[in-house]
């Protein structure tokens, strides 16, 4: 039993600690690096005013992978996710330190402006939030403001393919001019996904996208995530362990603002190394 060395990233792999034996929360257990990262986060701290919500999180997000973030309520999953497209900028008194890079460009240090950043890192929110406009306008808005379409036909085709990819085309094609807010909850969430992919981002962040949905709508969205993985990099926050297991390749477990453990999804769910991860997964906690 060598807790201290196991807690050091990189070394963990070699020491091969037994399941659920690590107890220190000082360092992340597991492999935070990936071979082909799209985004790299190093020593990220987030403060809301005086209160620190994220403590020294380092994590890579691999290309064309789905990484899921799990953990008890209030542990900072949403906060961390919102760092990745600088949505935290909109909250008064929120401060982010550390380094977050996307394709070698620092997103907080003036290397990349927020507008192009958010165009390439899309977000789907926990509560479906379509604009109170038509379904068509909801999806066309992003491409329009970024000047992605050359003409009306092109815009039409962007709208159609986005809806098709989000699995909403069949239900929505006859009512494109009707308000997006008139759709059902699950349809609205798929509309929001379509809106996010219409600007062809490289990364899509999803914050509990299925928390308000029934099992059928959830299954549709999970299918969708699996398909989207071919083109996009996806980071998803979820409270459902089954969902994390079904859709993601890597899983990160957060606890009280710290990244406790990260690794291949199979490994996290079958043989978690950290005591807290094991407790959470086996339902003893959270």
């Amino acid at each position: 039993m060598n807790e201290t060395s196991a807690a050091t990233p990189g070394l963990a792999e070699e020491t091969e600690a037994a399941a659920g034996t690590v107890q220190s929360t000082d360092d992340t257990v597991g492999e935070i690096y990936v071979d082909d990262p799209r985004m790299t986060c190093r020593n990220v701290d987030v403060y809301y005013g005086e209160k620190q919500a994220i403590f020294d999180v380092s994590l890579d997000i691999g290309k064309n992978q789905v990484i899921s973030m799990i953990g008890p309520s209030g542990c900072g999953k949403s906060t961390f996710l919102r760092c990745l497209n600088r949505m935290n900028d909109t909250i008064d008194g929120c401060r982010v330190t550390g380094q977050i890079k996307m394709d070698e460009q620092d997103i907080y240090d003036g290397g990349l402006d927020v507008v192009p950043l958010r165009a390439s890192v899309g977000m789907v929110f926990q509560k479906p939030n379509p604009f109170p406009k038509s379904i068509y306008d909801n999806i066309a808005y992003g491409p329009k403001i970024h000047g992605l379409s050359d003409n009306k036909e092109h815009l039409d085709s962007i709208v159609e393919t986005s809806l098709q990819r989000a699995g909403l085309w069949e239900e929505a094609k006859d009512r494109l001019d009707q308000p997006g807010t008139g759709l059902s909850g699950g349809q609205q969430q798929r509309l929001c996904i379509a809106r996010a992919i219409a600007v062809s981002p490289e990364v899509i962040l999803m914050d509990e996208p299925c928390s308000a949905l029934d099992p059928i709508a959830t299954a549709k969205i999970e299918e969708l995530i699996d398909e989207l993985r071919e083109r996009f990099t996806i980071a998803i926050v979820t409270h459902s362990m089954q969902q994390a297991a079904r859709v993601s390749q890597r899983t990160a477990y957060f606890h009280l603002g710290k990244l406790i453990e990260v690794g291949e999804t199979d490994q996290i769910f079958t043989s978690p190394r950290h005591k807290l991860t094991e407790d959470y997964i086996t339902g003893r906690f959270g």
Partner: peptide, 22 residues
């Protein structure tokens, strides 16, 4: 609702666009 602002900012609208469009 703030969710409308978040939605607009989330697809990359600038603050001014968020305000004038939504």
């Amino acid at each position: 609702p703030p969710s409308i602002r978040e939605a607009a900012l989330g697809v990359g609208a600038s603050p001014m666009q968020t305000i004038t469009h939504h």
